[in-house]
């Protein structure tokens, strides 16, 4: 189980980094989303993996999953929506303003070739 989660985190991180390093806005936004998943899951695992013991108090249960990382990740998920939305809006605004969705400053506004 631990291996599965860790490898998923690793793969999502790698894919996220690769996409963030692309040259157009949309892949970068996808990359940021993937990195967000990876980071949220990573933060969540800091409470270690517990199966079938949600942190909802019951009279006859004494073993619970760590609630604190869950609370922190919950707000992180909502905030990352806000962040993604702002990033998308900025990218969209730039594209609508210049008809160009390159993420890097272009030497010539007219050139459509990528940076070397």
């Amino acid at each position: 189980m631990e291996f599965l989660v860790a490898s998923a985190i690793g793969l999502m991180t790698a894919a996220g980094i690769y996409l963030v390093l692309r040259l157009r806005t949309f892949p970068v936004i996808l990359g940021i989303s993937l990195l967000t998943y990876a980071v949220n899951v990573f933060l969540f695992t800091s409470g270690r993996l517990v199966i079938g013991a949600p942190p909802v108090l019951r009279d006859d249960v004494s073993n619970y999953a760590d609630p604190l990382p869950q609370a922190l990740v919950l707000t992180a998920i909502v905030i990352s929506f806000g962040m993604t939305a702002v990033a998308v809006m900025i990218g969209l605004g730039a594209f609508l303003g210049s008809d160009d969705d390159h993420i890097d400053d272009q030497a010539e506004a007219s050139s459509s070739a990528g940076q070397p």
Partner: peptide, 9 residues
């Protein structure tokens, strides 16, 4: 990605 994997694991 490897670093993230190793650390999480």
């Amino acid at each position: 990605g490897l670093a993230a994997f190793v650390m999480a694991y």
